[in-house]
Amino acid sequence: MTRTLAPARRVLAVTVLAATVTGTLAACGSGSGPELPPDPKVGSTAAPAADTGGRAPALPRSRPTGMKIDAAGVDAKKMVDLKVDAASGELGVPNADTDANSPGWWTEGVTPG
């Protein structure tokens, strides 16, 4: 009799385990978790380009003046100029002693705007 009960207990244990895992996964996907922040609002303070026959005039290169990311609590008022090291070909990084909290900007890359 014990030989016939052992497989039945295994089936019951597997069934209970499967139901527990299924219920846990369903609860995770039910939306009862923390609310995500709203999407950031993106705007521009740039003036519209003058009418040049459908083609905008080329703008001079510009430099970033800071970086603000509200959702991450970032409000940097300074950007560090970064260049590629000619010997290694690697992009430099901000100095850890003086500019650890300042974002860097690759000066040879695309300009902001």
Score class of each variant (00 low, 15 high):
P34D: 11
K78L: 00
D99C: 02
A58E: 13
L5P: 07
N95S: 06
G53L: 09
T107L: 00
P40A: 04
A49M: 05
T15F: 10
R63G: 00
V42D: 03
W105N: 06
T15N: 05
G66L: 06
T65H: 12
P48D: 12
K68E: 08
T15G: 15
P94W: 01
V16P: 15
V84Q: 06
A13H: 03
A18V: 11
A26F: 02
T24R: 02
G23M: 08
A58N: 08
K83F: 04
R10A: 07
P60I: 10
P37H: 11
A26D: 03
P48I: 10
P48L: 04
L25T: 11
R61S: 05
D99W: 09
D51H: 06
A100E: 09
N95H: 03
K77Y: 01
T45M: 07
G53I: 12
G73Q: 12
A49T: 08
A6C: 07
A18K: 03
T98Y: 15
G53C: 06
K41S: 03
R10D: 04
P94S: 04
S62N: 03
S102H: 15
T111P: 10
T4C: 07
A26W: 08
R9S: 15
V14P: 01
P112D: 08
L17V: 03
R3I: 10
A49L: 03
L91A: 14
A47S: 04
T20P: 10
A71Q: 15
D70C: 10
